[in-house]
Design a protein around this nucleic acid. Structure first.
Lengths: 255, 255
DNA sequence: TCCAATTGTTTTATAATATAAAACAAGGTT
DNA sequence: AACCTTGTTTTATATTATAAAACAATTGGA
């Protein structure tokens, strides 16, 4: 495998640090790497320029730099939530027989980014990439309920509570009350508010900082799924949401 | 400033990724960097070997690798302990009037990584970055007592029990016995073993896995602090150590 | 289905750079 | 004050990184 020796060496310098050794001297690195100290110096100065390494001004020693944190966070953001959630969506669809969705927020709407139809599913309208309103969908209520307060206030400025069915929430005060209920219950339901005859429940998905980044839901027809069956789906869905969140880093102890 | 060009280029490749672009093709990187694609390929393969970059097997594109997360977490650990402990050191110094230290292990010694001098403090010899022996200091005894058994055995192989005062422990058997006492008491004391006239007590700091990663101590002069006063410092110090450990994730249960 | 275009990967000659020896500057210890 | 250690700088040259060329694999369009 082709390799760039000087890059290889620099990355191995980054590996020298561990929990006990947060700082290292040039001469220590030189000895551990069996490289001349002026070679080590050049490598360190390049790493330093890019902020992967910094020099403690008090001791002259070197330590890991903030760029690692920055790039590491970016990586976390990129972890494909779809890939992580896919197995859970399959499991939900199988366990309930219904359609399960994965939705993220884009601006003032939700967007379907994945969907699995169960064996008894008859919900066909949703499509990946399609948008869904926040005020009258279970996933939308979840996303709105758990967004930061300031962001929610900005969202509601001039928000258009379009009527979808006779049961749609159409005023701000009722919506806010609904969101408080969602926070208490840790799930949301839209009971024919978006589509006549269709009931959905949704729960939040959190990332490593606890921030809600998506919602996962189960969608049903009232003609196919009675009240008791729907209620029984809620803990199953909650467990699923928790597992996805864990895989997204939520609950990982601050390290 | 001296610079390694190939390292510089590799680190700039890592900078190309952002929130919108989590994956990049070799040809895209080649164009953005104005480098030949075989040059880019070599850089990417070296980064990949060290897990700073990985290749999506489905698309052939490249993305940031898990090593950034790992090194980033390590950095967080290093940052946190000083920042987290700083407030406690200030509190300890204030509450006891003495000097408080934060020490981590490096090889066969401890290293001061922070220090706060209290209003009644007269201990001046310690300096950040300075090393301290494990066998005759309170912080050293803590670090040795709570390290993994195999690591302790390796440490003691050929360990030089240098004499610092007439009270220094100078043989392995006595030292091991002392460490057993430290484990039972959950604190260590050096009673003029490192420096005549100086007595110190120290307690462990644990991370989220329970591993001891540092020690925090109070240092006193026997001429300024009598036995009863020193004994009264111990529970204060223990509480401080526990608070620091909690902030380092120790004791947190995974959701 | 076939073919062209594009992209990823490999090889290797040589232009360009990384390396370390030597020297200097700064800090720490005795 | 003197000596030792460590960090930093300079520069000749040994060594490597680079890219041109070629090949392999994949993708997209007709």
């Amino acid at each position: 495998m082709p390799i760039i020796q000087s890059l290889d060496r620099a990355l191995r310098i980054l590996d020298l640090f561990d929990e006990q050794e947060s700082e290292l001297k040039i001469t220590e690195i030189s000895r551990k790497m069996d490289l001349h100290k002026s070679t080590v110096h050049s490598l360190l100065k390049t790493l330093q320029e890019h902020r992967y390494i910094e020099q403690n001004p008090e001791t002259g020693k070197y330590r890991l730099g903030m760029k690692l944190l920055e790039r590491g966070h970016l990586l976390l953001q990129h972890l494909d939530i779809r890939a992580v959630a896919r197995a859970e969506l399959l499991e939900l669809a199988s366990a309930t027989g219904q359609t399960s969705h994965l939705v993220i927020q884009e601006g003032r709407e939700g967007v379907y980014i994945d969907k699995v139809e169960g064996p008894r599913a008859v919900i066909r309208y949703s499509r990946i990439g399609r948008r869904i309103p926040l005020h009258c969908s279970s996933v939308g209520k979840v996303l709105a309920a758990f967004m930061p307060q300031a962001e929610l206030e900005r969202l509601l400025q001039g928000y258009d509570f379009t009527v979808h069915t006779s049961r749609t929430i159409t005023d701000k005060a009722s919506f806010i009350q609904e969101l408080e209920q969602v926070r208490r219950d840790s799930y949301a339901m839209d009971d024919q508010e978006n589509e006549p005859g269709v009931r959905c429940v949704a729960v939040p998905i959190r990332n490593h900082t606890g921030q809600v980044i998506a919602a996962v839901s189960i969608s049903t027809l009232i003609s196919n799924v009675n009240d008791a069956e729907l209620q029984a789906f809620i803990p199953v869905l909650k467990s699923s949401g928790e597992r996805i969140s864990n895989q997204m880093g939520f609950g990982m102890v601050k390290v």
